[in-house]
Computed example of a mutant assay.
Amino acid sequence: MPDALTPLPDQLIEAVTWHDEQTRAKRVDRMRWSSSLKPEAGLVFGKPEPLAVLEDARASFVNEYYVAAIMTATAYIDHALGTLLSRRKFKPQENTLSARIRAARRKKILTKDVLNRIDTLRKIRNPFAHEMPSDHPMNLGNRVQSEARHPQAILEDDAKEALTLMYVVYAETLMKVKLSTS
């Protein structure tokens, strides 16, 4: 038997319906924006984990889960840099995103600008993934103060950058395969 604090199923449905109606237009805008980034690839084969992370990053962004979008987009980039490096028969000594970025610089796998942006994204991601001192400049609270912006606006911009970079790296991982018709 539900207690007084437990909403009844009809109330939950009403609340979800109301929320859906209130957020639908912005979700559609985010869906359109994120869809514009994805390169046309046709049929894609690959390891299921990075492909699942790629889709989760996009879905998180569409649904306004910006930290999740940043985390999953960065995870995809980490996977993809590992793939790009292994195609060149190179494995960094450390299994970290930072080491993969350094190795990608040495092997000139991506442009300097893209790798600099990925490194900035890594620094933005770190306070969400690792314990950082309260005075760390990339902590969200410190960024809110230094940028004089609302945290949600900062996170949305960070998530947009994360998705943009994720799809740039994704495009680099695609290999054209000629299928035999005989």
Rank of each mutant, 00 (worst) to 15 (best):
Val53Asn: 12
Val114Glu: 13
Thr83Ser: 12
Asp135Phe: 01
Arg24Gln: 11
Arg117Leu: 04
Ala57His: 04
Ser180His: 15
Thr173Gly: 00
Lys108Val: 03
Leu12Ser: 07
Val114Cys: 05
Ser98Pro: 09
Leu54Pro: 11
Leu12Asn: 08
Lys178Cys: 11
Glu14Thr: 15
Thr6Asp: 10
Trp33Thr: 10
Thr74Asn: 09
Ala15Asn: 05
Lys91Trp: 02
Pro39Gly: 06
Ala162Thr: 02
Arg24Lys: 13
Ser134Asp: 03
Thr173Glu: 02
Ala4Gln: 07
Ser134Arg: 08
Lys107Leu: 11
Pro50Cys: 07
Ser34Cys: 06
Ala59Ser: 15
Glu14Phe: 12
Gly42Gln: 07
Ala153Asp: 14
Asp119Met: 05
Leu140Glu: 04
Glu147Cys: 08
Ile70Lys: 12
Lys38Ile: 15
Met71Thr: 14
Arg149Thr: 03
Arg30Cys: 05
Ala4Leu: 10
Lys176Gln: 08
Glu161Gln: 04
Leu110Ile: 13
Ala162Pro: 05
Val168Asn: 01
Arg100Met: 14
Lys176His: 14
Ala73Tyr: 02
Gln93Trp: 04
Ser182Pro: 14
Ala75Thr: 07
Thr72Val: 03
Ala4Arg: 14
Glu21Asp: 13
Asp158Glu: 13
Ile118Trp: 00
Lys108Leu: 10
Asp135Met: 00
Leu165Arg: 07
Leu155Asn: 01
Ala25Gly: 07
Arg30Leu: 05
Arg30Asp: 05
Ser35Asn: 13
Met166Arg: 00
Met1Gln: 13
Leu81Ala: 06
Tyr76Asp: 00
Thr164Tyr: 09
Lys91Ser: 13
Lys178Val: 15
Arg122Thr: 07
Pro133Trp: 07
Ile109Met: 02
Ala80Gly: 04
Pro133Asp: 10
Ala52Phe: 14
Leu163Asn: 01
Asp20Trp: 08
Arg27Asn: 03
Leu85Phe: 00
Pro48Ile: 13
Thr173Val: 02
Leu8Gln: 08
Pro2Ser: 06
Phe90Asp: 10
Ile13Glu: 12
Arg105Tyr: 11
Asp20Ser: 14
Glu64Ser: 11
Met175Gly: 11
Pro9Arg: 04
Arg87Cys: 08
Leu163Tyr: 00
His79Gly: 09
Thr6Ile: 15
Val114Trp: 04
Ile101Pro: 11
Ala25Asn: 13
Met138Ser: 04
Val16Ile: 15
Arg143Gly: 04
Arg88Asn: 07
Glu147Ile: 10
Ala99Leu: 11
Arg125Cys: 06
Ala159Asn: 06
Asp20Asn: 10
Ile118Arg: 03
Leu121Phe: 01
Ile77Phe: 02
Met138Ala: 12
Ser182Lys: 15
Val62His: 07
Asp157Leu: 08
Asp135Lys: 03
Ser86Leu: 05
Ile154Phe: 05
Asp29Ile: 01
Leu5Asp: 15
Pro48Trp: 09
Asp78Cys: 03
Ser146Leu: 09
Lys160Asn: 01
Arg117Cys: 06
Met175Leu: 13
Ile70Trp: 06
Thr173Trp: 00
Ile77Ala: 02
Tyr170Ala: 02
Pro7Gln: 11
Ala162Phe: 00
Leu97Gln: 06
